[in-house]
Design a protein around this nucleic acid. Structure first.
Lengths: 349, 349
DNA sequence: TGTTAGCACTCCACAACAATGAGTGCTAAT
DNA sequence: ATTAGCACTCATTGTTGTGGAGTGCTAACA
C-alpha cells in the first residue's frame, strides 16, 4: 500500500485538526471540513490504511485518530503551510520582539533573558535561550590591578569579549613597579594564546620568571582555569515554564514535576543545546518530536530549536518546548525569522 | 472560654499529627495516641471548643479537624519542640551542607546556588537564597584598560567586592599616556565615593576635565549607572521548585502554575526578600503562615526565612517555601543553625 | 472498481445510585 | 467532669446504566 495524494491530504487534515483541538479526530469531521467531498465511510477506509502505515493511532477502539510521531514527522518535513499570512504574522511578532530587545538593553544576559520571555509569551510554550558558546577560545587580555593594600583584581578577557574577574588576597602589599612587571609578564606570555595551550610547562615557566611572586601567578592561573571550566557549562535562560500547564497532556503531576525539574536543573538542557549545535542541518532549524529529543524527560514533548550566530563564530541556541501537538507552522516560522534577523542584526554591528 | 493547658495539649497533638499525615485528624486518633487518657468523646468536646476559639477548622461536617492559620501561629510561637534530638539532627544536616559548600567553591554565585539546592534536597521544600544586598555602596576602584585598538574595558569595583565590567568601543586609538590620565582622573574623583553622591554636577566636572575625551567619560558613567541599577534588583537563586508536587494541596494545576511562575519571575520573590530584610525581628528568623506572606500567590504556603549577614554589612535571605503543614520544627532549627554558622563563618575570614 | 449508506458493535464519559466508614454532636448514665 | 452509646452527616468508592461518538463491515450503487 502506498501513500497517495489523497491519503496525504487526509493525514494533513487530521493533524491540523488535532493540533487545534487536542481531541482525537473522527472520520465525520474530516469528511465535513475538507474540500475532498468524500463521505465519512470512505475517510474511514483511508484512515484504516493510514493507521496500518503507522501515521496515525487510535487511543481506543471507538475513538477517533491522533497523529503518531511518524505522522508528525512527515507533517513537519513536507506539509508545513508557509502561507504568506502565517509568515508575515511571524515577522510581525519578531519585529515586536526586536523592538523590545533593542530598547537599549546593554547586557547580553538581560537581552537573552528577555528574548526567552518574549518568545514564551508569544508562543505559549516554554522557551530556552543559550548564551553563545565560544569555541576555540583565545585569551585576549589579562590584567592585575591593585584595588586595596591586600587585594588584587584579576581581569581576564577571552575572545568574544567574555570578561571574568577574581579577587586575590595578598599577604603583603605589592609596589606598583612589581605589579607592572607581573602584568607585562602575563600579557607577553599569554595574550592571543588559545586556552588549550596553557599547560603545566607554560605555568612553570611563568612561575619561575615571577620569582618570589610565583604564588600570585598560581592564583591567576587558577582564575584562568576557572574561566575555562565555566566556559564548558553553557549559560541557559528559560522562560514560560508554567506554560506546560496549558496542555493537559503535560500537566499531570508526574510529568509536570519532571519537566519543571529539567528546566530548573539546567544541566539537562545543556545536552539538548549541545545536540542542536552539533547535529545542525542546513537550515539551522531542528525539530525533535516526542521520543526524538535527546532529553528523556521530554519524551512527551516536541522541541523546536534554532541556532543563531553572532560575530566571531559565537553560536547559541533558541529552543521552544511544547506538547507534541505544537503549532509547528507558527513556531518554525517564528524561529526562522528570528534566527535570520539575529544573524544579520549582529553581523552588521 | 479559655485556652487551658489541656486544650493546648490537644491542639498540639492535632497539629503534630496533621503535619505528619496531611489528613484531617479525628477525636479517636487523639484519644489513642496521646498520654492524656481521655475518651474520644471528651476530646470531641474539647475540639468543639478549639474550633469555636478559631484554632482549628472542619473541612466538612463529618471530617476531622485541621489547624487554622491561627492554630499554626500559636504552634510556631509557643509550641516548637526544640528537642536536643531535633536540634542535633539539624546541626548534622547543616554540617553536611557546610562541607559541600566549602569544597573550594570559589564564586559567590555558585555557593548560593549550591546552598539553595542542598537545602531543598534536605528539606523537601522549595528554597530561595538571595545574594547579599549591599547598602550604602561605595565605589572602591575604577579602571579603564586597553584591550584592543578600538576597545576599552571598564572595571568597576564596589564595596563588598562586587565587580562589573563593560566594554567601550572607541572611534580612534588612545595612547597609553591619555589612558593613564583618564584613570587618574576617574580614581581621584570617584574612589571611596558613595554611589548616591555621583550626580550630574560631578559628571559635568569630570567631562570638562577630560577635554576631548569627554565622551569616554560619558560611557564610563553609563556603566557606573548600570551598576547602581543592577544593584537594586537583588539576585535570587531558587531550587527544589518541583518539591511542591510532593504536597497534593499545592499541586493542582492552578496553584502549581502560579507557584512555578512566581519562582521563575524572581521579581515577585524580591518582595518577599525585601520584606524579611526590613521586618526583621530579633531572632533573624521569620515565619509567614498562609495569608501572612507578602506574596499573594503563596497564600496556601508557609514561608520560613532567615537573614544572614556577611562582612561589611551585606545582608541576604534564605527562604524555605512549603505547604502550610510544613515541618516547622525541623525547618526552623535547620535555618537557625545554618544562619549562625554562616554569620560566624564569614565574619572570621 | 471506487464510493457510499446503513447497521451492528465498541467503549469512553458521565450521571445516578447505593454502600462504606470515618467522624461528629448530643443525650443520658456513671 | 467524663464517657458510652446512638443517630446523623458526608466524602469516598464502587456499581450500574445510558448516551453518544466513532468504528468496521457489508451490501448496494454509479
Amino acid at each position: 500500500m502506498e501513500l497517495d495524494e489523497r491519503k496525504r491530504k487526509i493525514l494533513q487534515a487530521i493533524i491540523r485538526n488535532y493540533l487545534e483541538t487536542g481531541e482525537p479526530v473522527g472520520s465525520r469531521t474530516i469528511s465535513k471540513y475538507t474540500d475532498l467531498n468524500l463521505s465519512s465511510a470512505t475517510i474511514r477506509n483511508e484512515m484504516a490504511d493510514l493507521e496500518e502505515l503507522g501515521y496515525i493511532l487510535q487511543p481506543h477502539t471507538s475513538a477517533g485518530r491522533i497523529p503518531s510521531d511518524k505522522g508528525y514527522r512527515l507533517y513537519v518535513d513536507t506539509m508545513l503551510m508557509e502561507k504568506e499570512e502565517q509568515l508575515s504574522q511571524a515577522t510581525q511578532e519578531v519585529k515586536e520582539m526586536q523592538q523590545i530587545l533593542l530598547e537599549k538593553e546593554d547586557k547580553m544576559e538581560a537581552i537573552l533573558k528577555q528574548m526567552a520571555k518574549v518568545l514564551a509569551v508569544n508562543t505559549n510554550y516554554a522557551t530556552l535561550v543559550s548564551a553563545p558558546q565560544v569555541k576555540g577560545n583565545k585569551l585576549k587580555f589579562i590584567q592585575l590591578s591593585k584595588v586595596d593594600v591586600r587585594q588584587l583584581l584579576t581581569t581576564i578577557v577571552v575572545e568574544g569579549n567574555v570578561i571574568k574577574n577574581t579577587m586575590i588576597q595578598v599577604a603583603e602589599p605589592l609596589d606598583d613597579e612589581t605589579l607592572l612587571k607581573l602584568n607585562i609578564l602575563l600579557n607577553t606570555n599569554l595574550n592571543g594564546l588559545p586556552i588549550e595551550e596553557i599547560n603545566l610547562a607554560m605555568i612553570a615557566k611563568l612561575k619561575q620568571q615571577a620569582g618570589i611572586y610565583n604564588d600570585i601567578i598560581s592564583e591567576v592561573m587558577d582564575a584562568v582555569a576557572a574561566v575555562i571550566k565555566e566556559d564548558e557549562d553553557i549559560e541557559i535562560y528559560t522562560s514560560g515554564t508554567n506554560n506546560i500547564f496549558k496542555y493537559p497532556e503535560l500537566s499531570d503531576n508526574q510529568r509536570a514535576s519532571e519537566l519543571i525539574t529539567t528546566f530548573e536543573e539546567k544541566q539537562l538542557l545543556t545536552e539538548l543545546v549541545q545536540d542542536t549545535l552539533t547535529e545542525e542541518k542546513n537550515t539551522g532549524i531542528q525539530v525533535y518530536i516526542g521520543n526524538e529529543t535527546p532529553v528523556k524527560t521530554m519524551k512527551d514533548c516536541s522541541v523546536v530549536t534554532a541556532t543563531y550566530e553572532l560575530e566571531e563564530g559565537m553560536k547559541g541556541t533558541i529552543g521552544i518546548i511544547g506538547p507534541r501537538r505544537m503549532d509547528y507552522d507558527k513556531v518554525i516560522s517564528t524561529l526562522k525569522t528570528l534566527k535570520s534577523q539575529l544573524d544579520t542584526l549582529y553581523k552588521k554591528e
